[in-house]
Amino acid sequence: MLAFNFFGATEGGLFDINATLPLMAIQVVALTYILNSLFFKPVGKVVEKREKFVSNNIIEAKNKLSEVKKLEADLLTQLQSARTEAQRIVSEAENESDKLYKEALELANNEANASKEKARLEIESQTSAARDQLSKQADDLSELIVNRLILEK
């Protein structure tokens, strides 16, 4: 029967250990060398080459990205400085136009004041001239009156 064949038999049996063992060991060792040269080495070379390629590409892309970021930051600062410059120019122009306006206004004021003064002086001189004339006429008239009165006497 089955169970009795397991251990008992001198010839055969499940635990019949013989020269199969060392020969199989030699075969596995040989297989290790064959598979190493046929499978592990060539496939490893290709896979590791690709891994290197990929990691190199990733590093390169990272470098490029950081470069792009740096350039972007550069451009941003340039833009910022251009903006402040533009603002400075605009405010300068505003100040200048303000100054010009004020100057023009002052000039106009002065001129107006001057002509006003002149007109006033003229009016004054004319007034005094007219007064003089009037007083002279009054004198003439009074003299005339006096003369008439004297003559009639």
Partner: peptide, 12 residues
């Protein structure tokens, strides 16, 4: 399924 093979592997 042969004990010789598995013992050979284990001894290796």
């Amino acid at each position: 399924a042969d004990i010789n093979t598995t013992i050979a592997l284990a001894l290796l």
